[in-house]
Design a protein around this nucleic acid. Structure first.
Lengths: 261, 261
DNA sequence: CCGGTTGGTTCCATTATTTGAAACTTAGTC
DNA sequence: GACTAAGTTTCAAATAATGGAACCAACCGG
C-alpha cells in the first residue's frame, strides 16, 4: 500500500500522514512512518507534532507510538450522519434486502476508490461500522463501474488514473480501454454487472444513485454467488433496485435543502 | 459552538474549518462559513478548496454547499477500530451492563471535552455509531472528572482552560478552584461521582481507565437517576467497575504491543 | 566504562506557501 | 440597465514550512 502521492500543500501532506497512520492497524512508531513516508525526518516529525497537538493523532508516550486520535471519531460521527447516504438509505436497504433476499451494498466514490458505507446481509443484521468503511477498487466492482459510468468526463479521467487495473480474475477488465467500452454499455443500459471480475464466483447487479441533475452520489448493488443464482436472475431485480435508488436520491436531495439562516 | 481558536499552522486552520463544517448538521454554503469563521474570504476559500480536493469535504456543485467527505468516513473507520477503546471494551461493557442493570458509558478525553465512544443501555442494545460520537463537558460529568483527576499537570491545565464552567444545575462545580479540590478527592478515592452536576436527577459513579504507567486512556461510568437509586448504591458497583476498567486497560496495552517489523 | 548504533528531537538559514486586500465575475434584483 | 450579493481570482508581502545537519539519549556489545 502506501504510495499516496497527490499531496498539494501542507494540508495535503498532513492528511497523507493521517492516512498512513490509518493504514496500519496498530499504533505506529515514528521510524516506521519515516521509512514509509516520502518526507524528510524533520518534516514528518513536525507534521506528526501538529496532528497530535490537533487531536487527530494520539502519541502514546510510553511507547512512542502514534495512533489515530479521538477527534477523528468525533468528526466521523458528523460525517456519518451528514455526508454519507447511509442514514437516509437505511430503511430502503432493509426493504431491498427483504425483497431480494440477497446481499445489498451501498457505496460511494472516494477519490477513485469505492467506499462501502452500508450493507445488508440477508442472514445476519448489519453491524454497521464493522461492515461499512471498507474500501475496494472501482474498476472491477459493480458499484464502482455503475458510478464511473455516470461521472463527468474530467472526474472520470481523474478516477481512471487512480485505478490499478490489476487482474483479479479472468474476467477482470484490465485496461482503461476495455473499461471505457463497458462504461458506455452501462450508461446505455442503466445498470452495471460484476461478472466475477473481482472475486471468482461473486456476481452482482449495481445501479447508480443519481441526483435530478444527473450527478452520481452513490451506488447500490444486489450481490450473490454463481452457486446460488445467475446474472440474468439478478438483472430481474434491476428494476426495483433503480426505484429504490431513485427514492434515496430524492430524499438525499430534499434533505440538503432547508437552510433557514 | 464554533469559536475554535487554537489553530497553529495551516493544518490547524484547515482542521478548524473541517470542524466548522461538521458542526452544522446539513451542508453549508460558503458564505455561512465565512460569517462564522475568523478567516478572510480568500483564505477560507482556499482552505475549502484544499479540503475538497483532498476528499475531506464534498462540494455539491448544484447548490454550492460543502459537506464532510467520504474520506473522513474511511478514516473514521480506522480511528474507531484503532484508537478508540470501544472495540476492546465492548464485551466488558456488556458484562458490566448486565451485572449492574444500569446505563454504562465509555468515554475518552478529546481536547478537554468528553467524547462518549460507547454506551450500554440496560433496555435497548446499542446502535453504535448513533450513540457514540456525542461530546460533553468534562468539568461536570462523572467520566470527565474521573479523567481529569488522573491527568498530568500540564495536560490538566490545558484541559481546564477549555472548560466553560457553566452552571447547569445547583450542584455544578462552577470554578476551577472547586473542581481542583474535587479532583483531589477523586484521586484519593479512585472514583468520581456526578451529583446531578450536569443534569438534574442524573447521577453516576465513574472510574478512570489507566495504563500501568498511570496514564488516563478513558473512563467508565455507571449512570442512573435519583428516582431509581442513590449515589451510595452506585458506589457499591465501584469495585467491579474498577475491575472492568483494569481489564480494559490491560487489553488495550497488550493490543498496542506486537510490532514485528 | 567506552565507542558505536539506532531512534527521536531541535536548529536555523533558505525557500516556498500561505496570506488577504482588492479587483473581478457572475448571477440575481429592483 | 444600474445595483447587490455570492463566489472566484490576482499578486506582492509576510509567514510558515522545509530539510540538512547537529544534537541528545538510550541502548548495545565489547
Amino acid at each position: 500500500m502506501g504510495a499516496e502521492g497527490h499531496a498539494d500543500g501542507t494540508v495535503g501532506k498532513a492528511l497523507d500522514v493521517l492516512d498512513m497512520v490509518a493504514g496500519h492497524d496498530r499504533p505506529v512508531r515514528f521510524s516506521d512512518l519515516l521509512a514509509q513516508a516520502a518526507y524528510p525526518k524533520a518534516t514528518l516529525y513536525r507534521l506528526l507534532q501538529t496532528l497530535t497537538s490537533q487531536g487527530m493523532l494520539v502519541l502514546d508516550p510510553d511507547q512512542g507510538t502514534y495512533a489515530l486520535g479521538v477527534r477523528l471519531v468525533r468528526l466521523a460521527h458528523a460525517a456519518w450522519a451528514q455526508s454519507s447516504l447511509a442514514p437516509i438509505a437505511r430503511p430502503y436497504l432493509d426493504e431491498l434486502a427483504e425483497r431480494t433476499g440477497e446481499t445489498i451494498h451501498l457505496a460511494q466514490m472516494d477519490l477513485g476508490q469505492v467506499l462501502y458505507v452500508d450493507k445488508r446481509n440477508a442472514a445476519r443484521p448489519v453491524e454497521m461500522f464493522a461492515q461499512a468503511g471498507k474500501v475496494g477498487p472501482a474498476y472491477c466492482t459493480g458499484v464502482g463501474k455503475a458510478m464511473l459510468a455516470f461521472m463527468q468526463p474530467e472526474a472520470l479521467d481523474q478516477a481512471l488514473a487512480r485505478q490499478s487495473f490489476l487482474r483479479h480474475t479472468d474476467q477482470t477488465l484490465d485496461t482503461p480501454q476495455k473499461l471505457r467500452a463497458e462504461l458506455q454499455a452501462i450508461r446505455a443500459r442503466g445498470h452495471a454487472f460484476d461478472r466475477e471480475e473481482h472475486e471468482q464466483g461473486i456476481i452482482c447487479c449495481a445501479v447508480p444513485i443519481l441526483t435530478r441533475s444527473g450527478r452520481v452520489i452513490g451506488a447500490l448493488s444486489v450481490t450473490s454467488t454463481t452457486a446460488r443464482t445467475t446474472l440474468e436472475a439478478l438483472e430481474g431485480a434491476a428494476g426495483q433496485t433503480k426505484d429504490i435508488a431513485a427514492k434515496i436520491a430524492a430524499e438525499a436531495e430534499s434533505w440538503r435543502f432547508p437552510e433557514q439562516t
